[in-house]
């Protein structure tokens, strides 16, 4: 692999639903692509996710949401990261997010929302191109 950088990614599953097929596939695919991957498991609150992101010192959080609560949960996670001084962690995601909600999410600071049908390679490529290691403190 030509990339020199080492990236740590937290794959997170927020909300009350148990749809973890996508999150697990992405976590494995990212791991196979050479990232360091941590998977939170299901039913995480925004605070739990932000806490894990800080503790694990990750460079990006990939959020999977299929419960329809994306407009509540994405901003809550961004806020929780900010509160912990980690607003430079890149937040991206995927799930069932209607077109109309995309721009709203981008506006609050979500870097990218993948729609159903995105290939794992697309996600891998996007991360290499758009995520940088956070400067160590």
């Amino acid at each position: 692999m030509s990339e020199e950088k080492i990236l740590r990614i937290l794959v997170a599953k927020a909300g009350l639903d148990g749809h973890d097929r996508g999150a697990k596939i992405i976590a494995r695919a990212l791991r196979d692509a050479g990232f360091e991957v941590i998977y939170t498991g299901l039913h995480q609150t925004p605070e739990m996710i932000a806490e894990a992101a800080v503790q694990e010192d990750v460079d990006a959080v990939g959020l999977s949401i299929l419960s329809g609560a994306h407009m509540t949960l994405f901003p809550a996670i961004l806020d929780a990261l900010k509160e912990r001084g980690a607003d430079d962690v890149a937040v991206f995601g995927g799930g069932i997010v209607p077109e109309d909600d995309m721009s709203g999410l981008t506006k609050v600071g979500v870097k990218k929302v993948f729609t159903p049908g995105a290939s794992t390679q697309e996600i891998v490529d996007w991360i290499w191109a758009n995520v940088e290691p956070r400067s160590s403190l």
């Binding site: 909300g15 009350l16 609150t45 329809g68 609560a69 407009m71 509540t72």
Partner: peptide, 15 residues
């Protein structure tokens, strides 16, 4: 969870 539980926020009546 009931509708008024904090964990229900954003999920009430959605799915």
């Amino acid at each position: 969870y009931d509708a008024d539980h904090p964990r229900s926020l954003g999920e009430v009546g959605r799915e």
